[in-house]
Design a protein around this nucleic acid. Sequence first.
DNA 1: CGGGATCCACCGCGATACTG
DNA 2: CAGTATCGCGGTGGATCCCG
Lengths: 129, 129
Amino acid sequence: MGSYESKYELNGKQFYCPIELSVSILAGRWKSTIICELLQGKKRYGELKKNILNINHKMLAEQLRELESAGIIQRHVYPVVPPKVEYELTALGEGLRPAVEHLRQWGMYFKADDAEESQTVAEDVKEVF
Amino acid sequence: MGSYESKYELNGKQFYCPIELSVSILAGRWKSTIICELLQGKKRYGELKKNILNINHKMLAEQLRELESAGIIQRHVYPVVPPKVEYELTALGEGLRPAVEHLRQWGMYFKADDAEESQTVAEDVKEVF
DNA sequence: CGGGATCCACCGCGATACTG
DNA sequence: CAGTATCGCGGTGGATCCCG
């Protein structure tokens, strides 16, 4: 803490804190959902399309390409007809698992807190951590 | 897993997964930075403004109001002249600490991996987890 | 089956200015 | 010292089309 010398970069954007970097990678409209899917294992394009409700073709392809160029996921193309393409987390992407699990916990905590707006619930759920 | 029945909401937006919710809260341009600052303790508006490089007045005020309405931070106004206002994490906001720490770890991991593009480094840093 | 391009609406975010 | 209002650009993301 204290020094702002070291910078973090993604594409053209500069960040002063590693957390900004991490968040900016997860922040695309469907990125976290895709990562969740792939945390369950390697999947085909069509599987992802089917599992992720309301996503359209362009968005899925685009978000996948962005995750790939960030080094989070890896693309495996099988030279067959009809085409078969699988996506899989890299070691870097796998490293997101603990962070993602905590975000999931917190999201549930948030919902519970939100639903009852009472402090007692907040205290109860806090025990999870 | 399996059921997409329960929904998560923030403002008008619906999410099917708690992680989307969490990420959408952290995703504002300066949100994670502000949260980092406040994880170090209660701070005045001017302190935040001074510590967060390149943020402008309007953005700081706006992001603070959004975090407040999400229930992440709390605003304390002292009725004095000149005005004195302090911001502090709520219990809900404090609950983000573990997730944020993991994101910080991963951001550093990402940078190291990025810098040397060698697999050995990725393996080394992976031991952190 | 999976990928790419085009078009366009919306809103996030930044600059600037005015208020008590 | 802190907050709010206005304006405008640019990027994000959704619909829709064509391709091998």
